[in-house]
Simulated assay, not measured.
Amino acid sequence: MLQSMQNGNKSSKNSLKDVVTENEFEKRLLADVIPPNDIGVTFDDIGALENVKDTLKELVMLPLQRPELFCKGQLTKPCKGILLFGSPGTGKTMLAKAVATKVGANFINISMSSITLVW
């Protein structure tokens, strides 16, 4: 599937539909996966937050785009995760979508209702 996505033989939406899921939860989560071509958010769309954008570029995007810079020694290893926190409407999701668009990664938009059942 990855080779077909890279070669452009199939559209990314069709290739996500072809993924075999083992249960109903995986099928629900697969519906929340957005391919990088369909995200549509860039860093230019985000106003202000210049220091946050620069930090994300250094901590997340640079290790993904240039892994050879981070392979030597313990001090140069990239961070394992980033926690974005703040009040609703401050741009956390838009920042994550912009990073996914820039590095060409899928964006998984998970809500609590998609991973739990009412019953």
Rank of each mutant, 00 (worst) to 15 (best):
K57I: 01
K102Q: 15
I46K: 12
M5W: 13
L59N: 10
K10C: 12
K77S: 13
P36F: 15
L56W: 09
Q6N: 10
I39R: 01
F43G: 05
F107Y: 13
G47R: 11
Q6G: 02
G8T: 07
L59V: 07
G40R: 05
V41T: 15
G104Y: 07
A105T: 10
D38L: 04
L16R: 09
F85S: 09
G8L: 09
T76I: 07
E50A: 14
P88K: 03
V19A: 05
Q65T: 15
T55N: 03
S87Y: 09
P36V: 13
T116V: 15
K53Q: 10
S111F: 01
I39P: 00
P88Y: 09
A100P: 00
L62M: 13
C71P: 00
D45P: 02
L56K: 03
M112N: 11
S4W: 07
T101C: 14
I110F: 03
L95T: 08
P67W: 15
N9S: 12
V60Q: 01
K17A: 08
K72R: 14
I108G: 05
V60P: 01
A48I: 02
K17V: 03
V103H: 09
F70C: 07
A48M: 06
V99N: 01
L29F: 08
S113D: 14
F25A: 06
A48T: 08
F70A: 06
N23Y: 02
I46S: 12
L29H: 01
E26V: 08
I46Y: 10
S114L: 11
T55G: 02
